[in-house]
Design a protein around this nucleic acid. Structure first.
Lengths: 213, 213
DNA sequence: AATTCTTGAAAATCTGCATTTCCAATGTAA
DNA sequence: TTACATTGGAAATGCAGATTTTCAAGAATT
């Protein structure tokens, strides 16, 4: 019983404080999650596998997460929030064409998953249908992105870059279409894959057409 | 040892022959799969649950299927093959507009899942990321439907119903977009859901626009 | 009626993994 | 150096569900 006084959590261990060590372990576990979920799949990944991959003991694991599922949820949430932020942060410079604007949006949306395909598979395949909770969040996230898309479309209309048209399902169809194309791309042997910039071009082209541009 | 002679499998039981009884059990198990996978989700469904729902003993279960996964695979395969058949069978009557043709295609593609939403959830959510095998089949199926879509687009171009355009990702984006919209639709409380025919109209409209019509 | 199928239900086993405990190694404070 | 904190790894435990086996009752054949 000597933890109540001074130093609190300030004592260092191998140079780093307790919260720093915790954060590092947590980070390694999340990275392990991306690696294993993204290669073996969620179903085939065990807690022990995550621990081995991350170099963390199962005891420490349960100090960070309540279980496998929470690791996946955390990965999903952090990654998609980052993507959402990037999409929201797009500044639609005046003077651009509809295609240019949409292409930047597409790049922001699928870019991170093209750069790290493990992440793409985790977010678009492994995270599907895992639990009602995650499913709810996924649905909210998709709806949010679809709304952002619709907003972008309205902005394009306002600027006269595309003709007026009833709102409807465009945002949703665009999001679903992008992810389907993305997954197909990731599942294509890299030898015969379309180059990434070209892929994004093509995707932007289809969506622009859908918007009426 | 008296099974080698006459009657073979011809002996009746409660009026039906062995193969008929087997088929009936199999059918009940598949129906139970649609019900439970579609309501509780695949992850939450056990073999015993399927047996109880179907009124089949676990012994008989293992005479029909190797396990839970095979039930899901079978449901997926049979349902999607049916849909694929319907899509392929569409006769593109001359004189129709691009929109009318596409609407029939959309109806064929998503109709069955709108009629039975459990089926929609099973095919589009629960079947995702379950196993590498099923994932492969899913991918093939999606690619097949995308190709059929692309073929339809080419046909529309040939008839001058839509302007010429490079092939590319349209089929894939259309398939992904439809399924995303479908899932969003199914997850909308039925009280505030758009009426089905209107939903299909809208979907067909978006896809027609994507095709350049 | 006697005998032999067939079957659903229940019970017994088996298995894999989650979760907890234990332990030895290593680092830190005094 | 001694006492203590922290941690990874191995071992112990517990459990939920899969798979197999057993059982009793109904149904068909003779």
């Amino acid at each position: 019983m000597q933890e109540d006084d001074a130093s609190e959590a300030g004592r260092k261990w191998r140079g780093v404080s307790r919260p720093q060590r915790d954060a590092a372990r947590r980070h390694r576990l999340l990275e392990a999650g991306v690696e294993l979920f993204g290669t073996q799949g969620y179903a085939a990944t065990t807690v022990q596998g995550l621990c081995r991959q991350a170099g963390v003991s199962s005891r420490s694991f349960y100090e960070c997460f309540s279980g496998r599922e929470e690791v996946l949820e955390t990965i999903y949430l952090e990654a998609t929030r980052g993507i959402e932020r990037r999409v929201m942060a797009l500044d639609i410079a005046a003077g651009d064409t509809a295609y240019e604007i949409i292409r930047r949006g597409v790049q922001a949306g699928v870019g991170p998953m093209l750069e790290d395909e493990r992440l793409g598979l985790v977010l678009e395949i492994e995270a599907v249908g895992v639990s009602p909770e995650l499913e709810t969040r996924r649905r909210q996230m998709i709806a949010g992105i679809a709304r952002a898309m619709d907003a972008m479309m309205l902005e394009l209309i306002r600027r006269g870059l595309v003709p007026e048209s009833p709102p409807g399902l465009i945002g949703l169809v665009a999001v679903g279409g992008m992810t389907e194309a993305l997954v197909a791309h990731l599942n294509t042997p890299s030898a015969v894959r379309m180059p990434v910039p070209e892929f994004v071009d093509e995707l932007a082209r289809v969506i622009t057409r859908m918007a009426g541009g």
